[in-house]
Amino acid sequence: MENTVQLEEQFNAKLDKGEFIEPKDWMPEKYRKTLIRQISQHAHSEIIGMQPEGNWITRAPSLRRKAVLLAKVQDEAGHGLYLYSAAETMGISRDELLDQLHTGKAKYSSIFNYQTLTWADMGAVGWLVDGAAIINQVMLQRTSYGPYSRAMVRICKEESFHQRQGYEIMCALAAGTPEQKAMAQDALNRWWWPTLMMFGPKDSESKNSTDSIRWKIKRETNDELRQKFIDRTVAQAEHLGLVIPDPELKWNEERGHYDSGEINWEEFWNVVEGRGPCNHIRLKVRVAAHENGAWVREAANAYAAKKAKREAGSLVA
């Protein structure tokens, strides 16, 4: 018992000095659990996040856009893999993590339960959703768990093009025909509020936030990050000549920030709890890919076993 107290003191001292926690270091059980939950949730979000954009790869309106979108969705698979690897260093297998996703035990970012209805959604997702994600991810580069931090550094480096390509799509639409511009505005209307919800519940109502901040897993709160996103995005929308669908959005000189309207938290919680437009389809597609691939994974294992046996045999002979 005393030992645990001592270990926890050492652990906290390390965090205070700004040192990283590495896989073999002692860590409080709750730190481990919180991290596994957060990293795997993050990984699941990347993987499920392939679907809303994957929808439009086959319909991309130019070959350049097609290549870019393919590369972007591929990056998401890659980022999912980096994150699963980071989670695996905490002694949980990817098999278990995927099982939690497939059985609905693990959550992923609710934003991916919204539909991508038009091409402009490819722009809005890149610009807004990736823009919001980057704010979170830049912070997570300094997260206290070494493997998570390293994964985030790599991810941030690679993701820098994601938001740009989204904004570029929006620019093309905003400068295009009246129909294209309307398409862009419609996408902004539908994605603005769900994007703000990505930062999670208000600080006053977030049950996980305090521990995460104390352990330096997170370094800024949900509300701080959300504010940062709004402040950055307003000028970008103005440049496009599009209107952010929040009549209460107004610069507050005193605070040095934009004031904004209230998020529809009822919608937020309903989507989190499974009643978003695409919760069922996203999970169904993921589980189908997993199940349809089972025979492929088994075949590769069987071949590897045969080959190992043959090689061992030839060594003896």
Partner: peptide
């Protein structure tokens, strides 16, 4: 090949098929 995106038998293979498609 791009139709395999998000439907591959394992994530590593999703990435491989997308590389070929690209």
């Amino acid at each position: 090949l791009s139709e395999w995106t998000a439907n591959g038998p394992i994530l590593e293979e999703d990435i491989a098929l997308t590389n070929i498609a690209l």
